[in-house]
Nucleic acid binder design. Structure first.
Length: 135
DNA sequence: GCCAACGTTGGC
DNA sequence: GCCAACGTTGGC
């Protein structure tokens, strides 16, 4: 079981959109690092769903629901997607400021390389953020 | 809305 | 194969 963080601008695609659809593929990734991370995902892996730009918060937990496959939005076979289903909405969003305020989370990719749209997250980091959302 | 940081592209 | 130029992203 691995943990991830997937990022989206809520104006473009939000947590609510995923909830509405019930299940959706995560498309539009055009970055090799992010692509490689998606290729490493397995069904059952959990991903923090992060809203960038305006909200800058983790808002929910999505569950990976497929292996990676060819991105249906492009013919370019370099790019892949995985399916996600919404698993749980956080009781309270955990903001970027909250995360930055916690020393244990200062090594997160989100903090160090905020531009990467699909990131690995350590189990401890994942658990910590969930705990913060319940506090 | 601005600007810094990063990744990618393309010329050499 | 290197590096400058460019485009995009996302925090502020």
């Amino acid at each position: 079981m691995n943990y991830w963080l997937i990022k989206s601008e809520p104006n473009t695609y939000s947590w609510d959109d995923l909830v509405k659809l019930g299940k959706d593929h995560w498309d539009g990734v055009r970055n090799y690092q992010a692509r490689n991370n998606m290729k490493a995902m397995k069904p059952g892996d959990l991903a923090l769903f992060y809203h960038s730009v305006k909200e800058k918060s983790v808002v929910g937990i999505a569950e990976c629901a497929s292996e990676f496959y060819q991105d249906p939005t492009t013919d370019d076979d370099r790019w892949v997607v995985v399916d996600f289903v919404p698993k749980e909405k956080l009781k309270k969003p955990v903001t970027l400021d909250d995360i930055k305020a916690v020393p244990e989370l200062s090594e997160m990719v989100l903090v160090k390389n905020s531009r990467l749209s699909v990131q690995p997250v350590k189990k401890e980091e994942f658990d910590k953020i969930i705990a913060m959302s319940e506090a």
